[in-house]
Write a protein that binds this DNA or RNA. Structure first.
Lengths: 303, 303
DNA sequence: TCGTCTTTGCAACAAATGATTCAAATATGC
DNA sequence: GCATATTTGAATCATTTGTTGCAAAGACGA
């Protein structure tokens, strides 16, 4: 209905394309809006191919013009914003009909208000974590995914992070060593797991600075935390929304990385190199070719 | 930052505009997408004013260029990859100044376009999962958090989910039993971990229906998947954004729950009851009192 | 190894774009 | 009613756009 039929066409023809055209096709698939919004030359520049290639791609896909090619992409984006107001109202009742749309709407709105609600908390949280000797990360049950994510990415930045997961039931034992020089990032939403409340309380009592991601200033975590990042959890669905909490963690990580400057950049490059040498990642192209060119975005790292 | 402040600006200045400029402004307000997608001349033609008027309108609103005017309109409903190129360069210097705001902006915009990009894919994905005898969930490294989240919440709905985590290195062995009646939800973003690619390929070869959450139609997962949910990963920060993938998982879960109807509601109540009887959750009130009352919102469940 | 065929990108082209200029049309103040 | 200011649009200019032609580079089969 939207862009699907076109991208299908591209995917189906993809294998029969020449290498250079694939490069272009890949970029077009990944950035469909850019086709509509940018000029052909600018699009080609960003895709890293000469302008002619874009024209050739369009022709290969049976468009007479580049203009026709672009129009299809434009139409795909025009439709939803226009017709949605009308179609959104109807059909809210029908059991999950259009529920993804409603959730999307809600989540986007929640995410877009995170900083407003937390003003300087992000900075304070970053400072707290930077100063810490050790950074413990805690999150149980529904919050574990967020905690894991933070710990994993943080591990690319610095090596003083420790995820308190419970493999073997020993996970949180490490907290016993937490002290005043350390920091604890704790994530817990209503209903707060008993373990989260008790263990953070223990650490705080020992003088550890807690950064909390939680859902209310009045949550048992927030009241003991040095800084709290408050996230909404309302959702049109059965479940509490965790996306805002996840986004908050991701934003905090971004801030930490940015503040780290060159030192962090080095650490990331280091981690990448190690992973590459372990052959962790899958690669498209035949290994024989010049591998240098096959790393398209050098500055960008893997989270 | 997006379109809102601009249309505000137009409305506020509207009264002080000359008649002809109002004509133009009115059209621009009613067709903001056209500003981004059409040329100035074409836009003017449709608005019924000479081209110069559009330029004058842009200037009147303190834009140096018509290009700047258009860019603002483009940025409003475009994912941030494009417009951020400019701000990324300068922003990285200022070591994270206002980075949370920029990330928030980007993430919110990305989340708000998830369904547009994936149209019917959510429904197809839900159907596939519903039909499956077993539902395997796979995600490594940076994607594990998302996989965990899905598996955890899915576990509240039904008991046929299985997270392929690697505790003890045995995690993915379970995939050996995957067959044509089963489904596999796989999450992998660039750079794709070798293990994810190989193991999903194995399952697909055995006839398992794969639902992929990935970042391109051309990713090694998408090409083998029955349905693909495509998520953006661009970010103003060092790292790839995972929030869109997380939100997608959450939206899919919401859809599954909604489609499940009463049966699912029962299952959730069941799970809650069990957790409560294990005393998993912390409660504000003194223990002596009636414990029943300490389950605050009966309708709302824990994700 | 050579010759053929495909793929690729540079340079040049015509058309269209955004922007400028200026004169006509209209409104405004005295 | 006249002179001044403002508003408007046509004609024009310098760029940029999409497109074409052609030659170099590369792949492939004999």
């Amino acid at each position: 209905m939207t862009a699907a039929p076109l991208s299908d066409r591209i995917v189906r023809q993809f294998d029969s394309l020449t290498p250079q055209l694939r490069e272009a096709a890949r970029f077009v698939l990944d950035h469909p809006q850019d086709v509509a919004l940018l000029s052909m030359r600018e699009l080609a520049r960003r895709a890293g191919v000469p302008p002619v290639t874009m024209l050739r791609l369009a022709r290969q896909l049976d468009f007479p013009d580049y203009a026709a090619f672009r129009q299809v992409h434009a139409a795909a984006w025009r439709k939803p914003s226009g017709s949605d107001f009308a179609s959104r109202a109807e059909g809210l009742q029908k059991r999950g009909e259009r529920l993804p749309e409603r959730m999307e709407q809600a989540l986007a709105s929640q995410v877009s208000h995170l900083t407003a609600r937390n003003a300087d908390a992000f900075t304070t949280a970053a400072e707290t974590i930077e100063r810490a000797r050790r950074v413990y990360v805690l999150g149980f049950r529904s919050c574990f995914g967020v905690a894991f994510q933070f710990a994993y990415v943080y591990g690319l930045l610095r090596d003083n992070g420790l995820l308190l997961d419970g493999a073997g039931g020993t996970g949180t034992d490490a907290l016993r060593q937490a002290g005043p020089q350390d920091a604890l990032l704790a994530i817990s939403l209503e209903p707060y797991t008993r373990a989260a409340v008790e263990q953070t309380a223990f650490a705080v009592q020992r003088g550890t600075a807690m950064v909390a991601i939680t859902d209310s200033e009045l949550s048992p975590l927030a009241r003991q935390a040095k800084v709290s990042l408050i996230v909404p959890t309302e959702s049109p669905s059965f479940f509490h929304a965790l996306t805002p909490a996840f986004a908050t963690a991701e934003m905090l990580l971004g801030l930490l990385a940015a503040r780290g400057g060159a030192k962090v950049a080095d650490a990331i490059r280091n981690a990448e190199g190690q992973l590459a040498s372990f052959d962790t990642y899958w690669t498209d192209r035949p290994k024989s070719k010049t591998q240098v060119k096959s790393q398209p975005k050098p500055g960008k790292s893997r989270s």
